[in-house]
Design a protein around this nucleic acid. Structure first.
Lengths: 225, 225
DNA sequence: TAGATTGTTAATCGATTAACAATC
DNA sequence: TAGATTGTTAATCGATTAACAATC
């Protein structure tokens, strides 16, 4: 009913708020103001309140936000107040690492299946997770009631596999392939573009180095004069 | 000299342009218009031209952009027209995967050292890369002339290790720890927040599912009436 | 030449920040 | 009560899109 589209920027900040609240909670704090949250995350109190009020009124004037309440609300907003079943498609080095990455389990994401085309892997278990043949994808996905697919196949087959997943009615793809998937709106997609991130890091690294160089040249000039 | 600060948004699109150009090049294409680039990446020709002109004039009226020229320019802008030496700090499952991730080598990022506190790992090699003790960090970093540090330590020690790297004069940290590093401007930092990305994916997945539910309810109602 | 397409200036749109009444 | 802090409206800022003269 109330179709108020919340900006992507706002959504992407919600996990940051949650992590900070978890932090405070661990330190025995039980309430917090928008100003404190803002300071911790390097933003403004205005933005924090603006973000939160996109979803509801969780605070109290003169008091701030109850950490328990706000945590619960954000978890509800993101939908992480329940658990999900995850499959990893493509067990290369990255897929393998994600199979063993314990953090996911902690947040309620249960990795329950892996898929690959390598006969040496099919039928084995990694970290107690069975590896199936790509040929069994349709069957296993249904049987295992997979919610989220992690796409760690090679770049060459990414688009094809993604389209197949779409046809199978998958609702979420976590895409590590660095390929822009051509897929309908009905599938949620988040991209982890490692190489792109590394390129951006390189840009800022070099910019810093250039700045330092310019600075030291200026200093040297000053000494010479 | 010409201090024109280019927006983060623009920087983050440069790798996308480059990937698309590489794609075209592979298919034997040798020129492209801003309109074609925009269509491929789902943006506008205006934005493409605006982005590129932040760095220079690489196109020609009535013709478009030479793919070879533009590729070279973007590589120069990002600083990826040379090679870099990379160390991976923290050889857990994720660090291990990144050690074996061949893609980096392809783009000129040579992983030449790993660091851990685990005595069973120290002194061994993974994928021909030697694993050193964290105690030797300062020495090896200097000896091996490391440009970029990949931070894959446990969340608990992230801030501490990052501060140490800063003191060692490291110029770039690729941070996979999901911790906000408290570090000066002189170090370039890019964060890969896997859990945050997974939360955002979960949000959009659930929103889609809700939409579908609403839709089917409406359809059912229509049938009933 | 005519058509195509750039680089850039101006217009629009959206997101961030500031301000403030409401009230705990 | 007085001080603190929210939720929201208005003002500002920045990024995206549109328009167009320049020109290949």
């Amino acid at each position: 009913m109330s179709i108020k589209p919340v900006s992507e920027r706002t959504i992407s900040r919600m996990p940051k708020y949650l992590h900070y609240l978890n932090n405070l909670k661990e330190n025995g704090v039980d309430r917090v103001s928008s100003a404190s949250i803002a300071e911790a995350l390097g933003t403004t109190a205005s933005q924090v309140r603006q973000d939160l009020s996109a979803f509801g009124s969780y605070g109290a004037q003169g008091y701030g936000y109850s950490i328990d309440r706000l945590s619960a609300e954000i978890k509800g907003i993101l939908g992480i107040d329940t658990s999900y079943r995850v499959a990893i498609i493509g067990i290369g080095s990255l897929g393998h690492a994600l199979l063993e990455h314990l953090e996911f389990e902690k947040y309620g994401y249960h990795v329950v299946a892996g898929f690959d085309i390598d006969c040496d892997l099919i039928g084995t278990e990694i970290n107690h997770v069975p590896i199936y043949s790509m040929d069994d994808l349709a069957d296993v996905m249904k049987q295992q009631e997979i919610d989220i697919c992690v796409l760690t196949v090679s770049r060459g087959s990414a688009k094809q596999v993604a389209s197949y997943l779409e046809r199978l009615g998958v609702s979420a793809i976590w895409n590590f392939t660095n390929e822009k998937l051509e897929i309908g709106e009905s599938v949620a997609v988040e991209n982890i573009d490692l190489i792109d991130s590394l390129f951006v890091l390189t840009y800022y690294m070099n910019r810093n180095i250039e700045e330092r160089l310019l600075l030291s040249q200026r200093q040297r000039r000053r000494v010479n004069i």
